[in-house]
Structure formats: C-alpha cells, structure tokens
Design a protein around this nucleic acid. Structure first.
Length: 198
DNA sequence: CAGAAGATCATCT
DNA sequence: GATGATCTTCTGT
C-alpha cells in the first residue's frame, strides 16, 4: 500500500478532458503524520478554456491564480460559505485548466475519514461529493497549491478501470447542460458516484 | 460599497 | 423536491 507512487507530472500536462477521463480509477492518497488515507477516484469534472463555468473564464484573479500554475498543482477553493473543493491543475503553465474531483471510493484510512466526517456517516457517504471528500481527507485552503505529484498528498495511477465503464456511463456528459453551459463530466460505474441512488 | 451568485450539503416534507 | 446554512469572490456603481 505504501509503495504507491504519484503519477509523473506529464500526466497533468495534457488536455484537461483527457486528464479528467484518465483520472477515473486513479488513486487519491494522503500519507503524512495524520496517517494514511487512500481512495479511488470515480467521478471528475473538467474545467478549462471556452467554458463560462470555469473560474478562470474571465481572466486571472487572486482566487483562480493556481489554475494558471504548474500542472499537478492542487487548486482548493472555498464555496457556499463552508465547503472546500479539490482540483488538479492541468495543461501547461499559463493555460488555466483543472479537474474537479467530485467523488472517490474510500479504500484506506476509513476510520480517520469517519472521524473527520462524523461517526454516523456510512462508508458510501464518506466521500460521495466534492466537499465531502475534502472534509474526509482533511483538506482545506491551507493545502492550496500543494503538489499532487508530491509525497504526502498525491494522485497515483491505481488500477486501470475498463474504459467502457467510463465511456458508457449513463451520466457522462461531454456536451451542453440545459442552460447552455458546457458539461464535461466523467464517472465510473460505481455506487460511490455523487448522484447515484442505487 | 452594496448586491448577487456560487464547481455544496444536511435536513426536512 | 425544497430550503437554510454561511461567507468569499466578483461585479457594477
């Protein structure tokens, strides 16, 4: 378990849609003084150029500045007055793009996650949603700009899921939402995705 | 400086 | 399915 290594930085230095697809099945790992926490990524969403929903669509600001930085950088932003969301910055320096991690399947450190989330939370709900997983992993703004190719917080290659599970998902969307905004969403066929009822 | 919206979640009906 | 929580960030004046 501790032999898992981070992906190469070149993994993130690619078009954000490709990275969002390839992050399905990869591992999110935090391994530091707080212990080991590990989970499989099952749901992602891509943000980048030509996307009005992207935080950087109207240029660089203090908040979105990490999106312009080195691929593999963590962009962790605060929203709705109480929630933190984790992104992996993609594409070359100066090109704002990032993948939001929307849901993960807990694999290791489940008790630590339950301490962070609440004693009555079932395994399925520990990390099912972008703000839930940051809470479960103990991530917030103090970790903004962390290196996701680093050692104590990183993305690992994990087991390769069948691409079919990603490409045929009923809720995959590379297209347009009802309001006309782009929808760049990937999910595995898993009970740990954020919207499923199952 | 005020106002609105927001890459959400827990809780309730 | 609806609503409240809670506050930062951005925009317009």
């Amino acid at each position: 378990v501790t032999t898992i290594r981070p992906v190469a930085r070149a993994f993130f230095d690619r078009p954000v849609l490709e990275v969002a697809r390839d992050m399905i099945g990869a591992l999110l790992v935090r391994n530091d003084a707080t212990g080991l926490r590990m989970a499989r990524i099952v749901e992602t969403e891509a943000y980048g150029t030509n996307d009005p929903a992207c935080h950087a669509d109207r240029g660089q600001t203090e908040r979105n500045a990490p999106m312009f930085e080195r691929p593999g950088t963590a962009y962790i932003y605060f929203t709705y007055g109480m929630h933190w969301c984790l992104n992996a910055v993609c594409e070359p320096v100066g090109t704002p793009a990032a993948v939001l991690i929307r849901a993960v399947e807990p694999l290791e450190g489940i008790e630590a996650m339950r301490v962070a989330r609440g004693p009555k939370i079932g395994d399925r709900d520990l990390c099912r949603g972008p703000a839930r997983l940051t809470q479960a992993f103990g991530l917030d703004g103090t970790r903004n700009r962390a290196d996701l190719c680093g050692t104590d917080l990183f993305i690992g290659p994990g087991e390769r899921l069948p691409n079919e599970a990603v490409e045929t998902s009923p809720r995959i969307g590379i297209g347009t939402k009802q309001d006309g905004r782009p929808w760049r969403f990937y999910e595995a066929d898993s009970p740990f995705v954020s919207r499923g009822k199952r």
